[in-house]
Computed example of a mutant assay.
Amino acid sequence: MAGDGVEKIGQAVEDIGGYIRRQREGAEVSLRQLAKVAGISNPYLSQIERGLRKPSAEILAQIATGLRISAEVLYVRAGILEPRESSPVLDAVTADPDLSERQKQVLTDIYESFRRGNAVDGSAVESAAVENAVENAVENAAGRSAATDTENVSK
């Protein structure tokens, strides 16, 4: 029975490696190019793709950046994160290449706060949490916008 857990881990490593290979080939990126962008060696990336090595979360994030996909997708595939409930809104946010990972996370947090608020029938505690999340996001966005405006004016 103990072997079952080892087999599952082995399968997850093979799955993540195969998934990375399929994404790389679909993006028409060579192994060498992806390794360079991800900051890892060609042999190490090859071993990951063949299921011989299990990459750390940090390496997965670097590979995701190189493939221009969400690190979250790789984390779920590798078994680091639990899959979240599918939603067209969250899928669109995750897939948007023009958003940074931080921006995607803020939008996801706000959206999930609204969904939780609706599920609780507008409880006062949840409503306050939603309002705080929105306020924080607006303040962060306004701060970035003001900083960007200042940079643009000074140029």
Rank of each mutant, 00 (worst) to 15 (best):
M1T: 11
S154A: 13
A146M: 11
S46Q: 09
G3A: 13
S86V: 08
S30N: 09
V106Y: 06
V153N: 05
V29Q: 06
V73G: 00
G17N: 02
D15H: 15
M1H: 12
Y44F: 15
V130T: 08
Y75T: 05
G5D: 11
P88N: 06
V76T: 07
E82I: 02
Q103K: 06
R53P: 00
K155R: 15
R24F: 00
D96W: 03
E139G: 09
P97R: 08
S70N: 11
I69K: 00
D149I: 08
N140E: 13
L107K: 05
K104F: 03
I80Q: 04
P43D: 09
G51S: 10
E72C: 01
V6D: 12
R32V: 10
L34N: 04
A57G: 09
N140M: 13
E72H: 15
A137I: 08
E14G: 08
N136V: 07
S86I: 05
L45W: 02
V138L: 14
S113N: 07
R24A: 01
A38L: 03
E135S: 12
G51Y: 08
R102E: 13
V6S: 12
G10D: 09
A27C: 03
P55I: 03
E112Y: 04
G5T: 11
A146L: 13
Q103E: 15
T148P: 01
A2L: 13
E126F: 03
V13N: 07
G122N: 09
D109W: 02
Q47Y: 11
